[in-house]
């Protein structure tokens, strides 16, 4: 296939040889088109970011960041939403990071790459990463809220509704499942950067496999685990669809006080303000400001992850 392709090229080449101007023109255009596409993508990113920043920076005040919404969410701040987002992402990483790390360690250290288990786990991870987030929301509702939560309720205190309704715990666990693939992929990538010689040396010195993992592999890939964690938090902070019906609340004047209470979320707050509020026009400054806060949060996290990862890659190349 590839051989025939190159043959084609050579034939055409001899034909085009006389009209070098045409060749150069087409060549320049081809390079130009691809470059233009790349430029356009960059332009899109900057347009989004800059328009949000310009629209929102005026309204970012101390009061906005530390107060609860007032006047039917027409005024006031977004503190409960920030707090809810932070708590939710923390609970989520408590679940996603250990599980993801363990899976990544299994995939890279224990499993043979060709074994059926490793392959099916890898396929499951890929599928998990590409399932639409709204389906995770449905799953959270059907499994955590309706099944697990109701079962807990019927065992502990029959007749009442404590766990069998959307709350921050179920939302975090749903989100944890969603972000687990992110952790797995980036931790596995990091573990692969630990040179094989180190492992061999450790084993040759008489360490067991587990000791090697604990003393050599994990310290060597710590920054990768950190990257995975940050990326997962960033993804979790931005996703709204899974929490739409597993725990996010329309409006709560106070911050969540227990695992079984609902919470406000920055992304959900934007969605509510932009589409469901009684006076959308009036809250546009608030919407911009909330979006800016969310964007700042995720961009900071993402940038940290990108920098960490590029340092990691540099290290693996030098090692």
């Amino acid at each position: 296939m590839s051989v025939s392709a190159s043959l084609d090229v050579s034939k055409e080449n001899s034909l085009l040889g006389s009209t070098s101007l045409k060749r150069r023109l087409i060549g320049g255009m081809a390079g130009g088109i691809t470059g233009f596409a790349a430029m356009l993508i960059v332009l899109i990113v900057f347009t989004i970011v800059i328009s949000v920043v310009i629209g929102g920076y005026k309204n970012i005040t101390w009061e906005f960041l530390t107060e609860a919404p007032k006047e039917g969410m027409m005024e006031g701040g977004i503190f409960p939403a920030i707090f809810g987002t932070v708590i939710m992402t923390m609970l989520m990483s408590l679940m996603a990071v250990p599980l993801g790390t363990v899976t990544a360690i299994y995939l890279s250290e224990f499993a043979k790459p060709t074994s059926i288990f490793a392959r099916s786990i890898r396929f499951a991870v890929n599928t998990l990463a590409s399932i639409p987030s709204i389906v995770f929301g449905l799953f959270g509702l059907g499994f955590f809220v309706q099944f697990v939560g109701s079962s807990i309720d019927s065992v502990t205190n029959p007749g009442t509704l404590v766990w069998g309704q959307p709350n921050i715990l179920w939302a975090s666990m749903t989100m944890g499942l969603l972000t687990m693939p992110v952790v797995i992929v980036s931790v596995e990538e990091a573990i692969r950067t630990v040179p094989k010689e180190w492992r061999d040396a450790s084993l040759a010195l008489g360490a067991t496999r587990l000791q090697t993992i604990r003393k050599i592999v994990i310290p060597g890939s710590l920054s990768g685990i950190l990257t995975g964690m940050i990326l997962a938090i960033s993804r979790g902070a931005g996703e709204v669809a899974p929490i739409l019906f597993t725990g996010a609340a329309f409006f709560l004047p106070q911050i969540p006080h227990a695992l079984s209470s609902q919470f406000m979320h920055l992304g959900y707050h934007i969605y509510i303000l932009a589409t469901q509020s009684s006076n959308v026009e009036k809250t546009i400054p608030l919407q911009y400001a909330t979006t800016l806060v969310l964007l700042a949060l995720t961009f900071t996290l993402n940038l940290t992850a990108v920098i960490l990862r590029s340092r990691l890659r540099g290290k693996s190349q030098s090692a």
């Binding site: 989004i48 931005g238 996703e239 959900y268 934007i270 979006t291 995720t298 961009f299």
Partner: peptide, 12 residues
């Protein structure tokens, strides 16, 4: 960064 952009921000 574009991949990390929350979809709710793009929607907004």
């Amino acid at each position: 960064l574009l991949a990390g952009l929350p979809s709710v921000v793009v929607g907004f």
